[in-house]
């Protein structure tokens, strides 16, 4: 054991350095969020609970069943009667929130909203019916929010296969 090593060992220098750091951190701003009282802002395009979009007060969904076909966990079931979609059900407990239903829909009828607080006491409340899904649209996609969602996250669009103007670059330059 060298002299330097000996001094280091008896002075606890590395432990003191670490404690100085933690002491310094004690006076900096807390990064934690007191969840139920304050909520973090979620990013646009968050993949939360589903909504069926409307145009002119009517559901856009025509019931072609592409979302049910692509769904990897097979949580969507659709029933049609007399030219109407009578039942559109999403089993939230099975859904894995991959967002493939949004991508598969050629009509832009389904979207994922920013709602992530939907725990329930029984299974039935977690079966999303058509009415619940349509009311979700009014609740979580008010005004132009829905339109902006589709503009950004209903992909791919033609611009993904080309160079759109104003593409994001480092330093903001083209």
């Amino acid at each position: 054991m060298t002299f330097k090593h000996f001094i280091k060992t008896i002075t606890f220098i590395e432990i003191l350095k670490g404690m100085a750091l933690t002491l310094r951190r004690m006076f900096s701003r807390a990064v934690t969020i007191q969840y139920p009282d304050e909520r973090r802002k979620i990013a646009p395009g968050f993949r939360g609970q589903h909504a069926l979009s409307k145009r002119g007060g009517k559901a856009k969904c025509v019931g072609c069943g592409l979302c049910a076909t692509i769904c990897p966990s097979q949580c969507i079931s659709i029933t049609r009667e007399k030219g109407q979609v009578t039942k559109y059900q999403i089993e939230l407990l099975r859904c894995i929130y991959c967002g493939f239903c949004v991508e598969a829909c050629p009509y832009g009828a389904i979207s994922l909203t920013g709602n992530y607080e939907y725990s329930a006491y029984n299974k039935q409340d977690l079966m999303m019916t058509k009415e619940k899904l349509l009311s979700n649209w009014d609740k979580y996609m008010p005004g132009t929010k829905g339109e902006e969602y589709y503009k950004k996250f209903w992909r791919p669009m033609s611009e993904d296969f080309g160079t759109p103007p104003g593409q994001a670059m480092y330093g903001g330059k083209r």
Binding site: E103, G108, P156, M157, S158, D160, F161, G162, T163
Partner: peptide
């Protein structure tokens, strides 16, 4: 572009 120009193998553009 961010998607490959391979019409058979990627989703066609929605617009």
């Amino acid at each position: 572009p961010v998607m490959a120009d391979a019409p058979k193998f990627v989703l066609p553009p929605k617009d």
